[in-house]
Design a protein around this nucleic acid. Sequence first.
DNA 1: CGTGCGCTTGATTGAGCTCAACGCGCGTGG
DNA 2: CCACGCGCGTTGAGCTCAATCAAGCGCACG
Lengths: 249, 249
Amino acid sequence: MQDTFSELTTRSPISIARLKSSCAECSMQELCLPAAITDDDLERLERIMSKRLRVERGEPLYRAGDLFSNLYAVRLGHFKTVYSQDLSTKQIIGFQMSGEILGMEGIGAEQHQCSAIAIEESEVCEIPYDRLETLLSEMPSLQSHFHRLLSREINREQKVMLLLGSMSADQRVASFLLNLSRRYEARGQSAHHFVLRMTREDIGNYLGLTIESVSRVLSRFKKNGWIEGMLRDIKILDRFALETLCAAH
Amino acid sequence: MQDTFSELTTRSPISIARLKSSCAECSMQELCLPAAITDDDLERLERIMSKRLRVERGEPLYRAGDLFSNLYAVRLGHFKTVYSQDLSTKQIIGFQMSGEILGMEGIGAEQHQCSAIAIEESEVCEIPYDRLETLLSEMPSLQSHFHRLLSREINREQKVMLLLGSMSADQRVASFLLNLSRRYEARGQSAHHFVLRMTREDIGNYLGLTIESVSRVLSRFKKNGWIEGMLRDIKILDRFALETLCAAH
DNA sequence: CGTGCGCTTGATTGAGCTCAACGCGCGTGG
DNA sequence: CCACGCGCGTTGAGCTCAATCAAGCGCACG
């Protein structure tokens, strides 16, 4: 308490306001790094991640091969992360939305292994990684949280491996829709009505399908009365049917 | 030097011998957690991971759903990690060999998301995770190394996603063989002659192929003169051909 | 000596890919 | 204002690669 107060009085009100507008008031707080952290720890964290970046649709936040020095928390918008070893083969590894962390794949080689491309106008918080590591040493709860984040990314990819390794086209698309639905719901948005921010091509690449297959599957779902919608605007009418389809081995 | 000596003299020779036989003399040192660590830090680490476990062929080290409390470093043998949401669908996420870490997928949910099954008689070091986290806070270089490990697991899975998402059966099998080859080479074993410890069924499941397809692809490689071998004993005769195949988009 | 498991090989099938045409909305420019 | 091209998505026809179904081999083991 005393510490917090003295810290506050040593900086200008403007700077305080600026910090306040970052994590403490960010609606994504619960999903991002600051989760489960004390007020003054939050302050220390905010101080290192005060820089905001705006990324236009289609622009990369970073590219595969770039030197790794920052993580990024998505504040607003959507990204895709694209892995490619040579120039010809590309694989979309995931779609990231507000509250999710980008760049963790770069820690291991100190070089980004993926490109992160904004699929709409987006905004991120920059998290300098060396400064974060220092904080992690000093804040055990943040350290734990960070490890859980990394581990959950591993889990997420495992689910995708299951999808790619052993699901039919219909199951893949259904899983994809349900996954988006859950994530929008977790953000307080509608679980049964949302907009696909990505093209059919991106969806297909991510799911290991062609653009035509994605289109056909969606048409089939519409015909079945499971979903409704024009192009990217999707309404889920029969969630249970989609879930059953995914579960069916 | 002086430090090492004084440390040595303060404990009994037996205890020293025991510790020496763990990480410091383990041939996998470079691949596992102790990499790039000072002698006395190594000692502290060894003290928390002194427990060894033997796992028989076909036995689980842990199962999906088990409470997460340890990581494991493979000392000897081979494991497969199997992800399954329901009981019907199973996906092999990876094969782990000596020097590799098991269990990182369990940190996020404090519960293992995969089962780790020994595919031959194996031995692991148990690493109590809560004690490891304490050490990580106190040893920045170990913390960095641990984060790199987690990140590399993310990278590894990304490569598998690329494989599953956009490679032909032939490319998948070729990638698989080359991957094993590189890993055995890194362990000082032959890069062009090794034994597949896993069944065709496991390979197929891992690569998103049927057992028959795996068999046919291997036969085709033999016919092409790219590999040679009976059943699980594999000799790579034309590494370049396999690499070219993988690179071809 | 039969039985089961792991693997291979062949014949057939089918899900999803490829190729191709077309529709729609939108911005651009004559 | 319309014509046009372009990006994005849908739909159809045919094909292909890998799955499925089926048979058989070799080997370990009770």
